[in-house]
């Protein structure tokens, strides 16, 4: 079991650099947001996300904002090799045997937690084909869309956001392959940036993301701001426990060769109690919590009471007194 946790931790830790492709900067909030602000202004044209980010940036500099949607120049800037590159990364995100294997293995288990928690809360029939029909769900830090796709198949109206543009591209290309997932809306931005747009969601999910953000409290505040009153939140992360610590030392040593120093600060890992407190401060009360345990014999994860390594929490946002 420890071996398995080890493996998960390690790859969770690894994930960040490979997700962000060439720039581990994604972890630096200042840098990230400056990059993001730039590319956001370009995304006026829907196709932009699929294109070479650099080309897009240049375009936007020369053309300024707006009018991009029908600009032939933009279309001609389309770079097949870049597209091929996105596809190559898509293969990694969606390669069950690739670096994201632990996430794929974990996925059915966390989806079933989300399914039962949301169905109970929103009074949906958990055994209908599309229990989330009509629910607006946002997946913050969606990566390649591993969680977004099952939610969309279950009927939800899904939005996925991530700071890494390449992840968004990969997620988009993959979702387009199945009519059931092609309606997912992917946007490259941070939770903070989306808060500015005043959009609200019935459920806000952030799985395996909070351990990568600069300030978990600020992050949770942003998540809370995205939740509609009476809506729900689901967060999963790694515990700052002795067991997880032991696992991560190995990972950290392994990673030290190529990860910028301080990428994963131990102190950033939250215990379940801390997460509950932070959420509380952001007006979200945790109602359910579960741990994930790995069975090396079956190679499958299951839900348990043991939250000592990986855990997931479900909370709801109070409905403010109406005036």
């Amino acid at each position: 079991m420890t071996g398995a946790s080890l493996r998960l931790c390690r790859s969770l830790l690894q994930r960040c650099p490979c997700l962000s492709g060439t720039s581990p900067n994604c972890l630096n909030p200042a840098l990230t947001s400056s990059i993001m602000t730039r590319s956001l202004s370009d995304s006026a044209a829907p196709p932009a996300a699929i294109q070479n980010p650099e080309a897009v940036t240049k375009q936007s500099v020369s053309q300024g904002y707006g009018g991009i949607a029908d600009t032939p120049r933009l279309r001609s800037s389309l770079n097949d090799t870049e597209v091929a590159k996105f596809a190559a990364i898509a293969e990694t995100w969606w390669d069950f045997e690739g670096p994201f294997k632990p996430l794929h293995l974990l996925n059915p288990t966390r989806v079933s937690f989300i399914r039962s928690a949301l169905c109970r809360y929103f009074r949906r029939d958990p055994y209908s084909t599309r229990p989330f029909e009509g629910l607006k769900i946002i997946d913050v830090g969606c990566g390649g869309g591993i969680l977004c796709e099952p939610l969309a198949r279950m009927g939800a109206c899904v939005t996925g956001i991530d700071v890494v543009e390449k992840n968004i591209n990969v997620a988009q290309v993959h979702a387009g392959l199945d009519p059931l997932t092609s309606s997912i809306e992917y946007i490259c931005m941070t939770a903070e940036q989306l808060v500015g747009s005043n959009r609200k969601f019935d459920a806000v999910l952030a799985l395996e993301v909070i351990e990568h953000v600069a300030d978990p409290s600020d992050f949770v505040e942003s998540l809370s701001a995205l939740v509609a009153p009476g809506g729900a939140t689901v967060i999963s992360t790694i515990n700052r426990s002795l067991r997880a610590y032991a696992a991560a030392i190995v990972a950290a040593e392994y990673l030290l060769n190529w990860l910028p120093r301080g990428t994963h600060q131990w102190s950033k890992f939250l215990t379940p109690e801390e997460l509950v407190l932070i959420l509380q401060r952001a007006s979200i009360s945790v109602e359910e919590m579960a741990g994930f345990v790995y069975n090396p014999l079956t190679g499958e994860w299951s839900l348990s009471d043991d939250t000592s390594v990986n855990f997931i929490a479900f909370g709801t946002k109070e409905i403010p007194p109406t005036m």
């Binding site: 829907p46 387009g176 309606s183 992917y186």
Partner: peptide, 12 residues
Amino acid sequence: MPVICKARVYSM
């Protein structure tokens, strides 16, 4: 306000 990219943009 950013305009949002959709996976199925081409459908339009």
